[in-house]
Amino acid sequence: MENTEKTYTWMALVDSTPRQVDLTGNASLAEAIAAALQAEALVDPSKIACSEGSCGACCVRVDGERLLSCLAPAWRHFGARIETAASWRATDLPMRLAQAGAVQCGFCTPGLVVALGDLADHGVKPKTEAELADLLQAHLCRCTGYQQLLHAGLAWLNEQENS
C-alpha cells in the first residue's frame, strides 16, 4: 500500500542544534518528545525504555525543565530547547560516572547524566547518598545496584561551583 499519509514537520533546538523531524501520519501527532527525537537520529542520547514514565531513561531538559520525555507531547513543545546527555559531554560528569563503575549496560546512563547535570545547575548538594537516592528515584538501573552511581554522583554534585 502506498504511503499516502501526510507528513508533519516537528522542530526543536536539540543540544544547541536545530533539528527538523518529519513524522508521517496522523497517529504521529501523538508522539512524545522521546519518540520524535528517536525518529531520525542515528544515535539518540535519550533512550526509550518503559514508555510510561517509570524508568527515567528518556529524561531530558526541555526549556530548562527536566522531563521524562516519553510522556511529554512533542507538539506541546514545538520549537523547544532540548538538552540531552550530549549537552553534558564537555563536562567531567560522564568520565566520573564511567570511572566509578556507575556505567554497565549504559542504557540508563544518559538519563542519569541529565538528572545529575540539572541538579548541579540548580545548586543541589545532597548531604548523603540516601538524599541523592530520593532525587534519583525516578531512574531505574538494572545493572549496577546503584551504589557506585550514588557514590560518584554525590561526590560530583558537591564539587560543583554554585552557579
Binding site: N26, A27, L29, A30, A32, A35, S51, L71, A72
Partner: peptide, 22 residues
Amino acid sequence: VAGGSRVLPLGPQRPAVLLDLA
C-alpha cells in the same frame, strides 16, 4: 491530554485526536 501517561504510549489506546490542556 494532561500529563500524558494514559494517551501518549504507543499502542491501541492512543487516541486519533488529542486536545492539549496545557
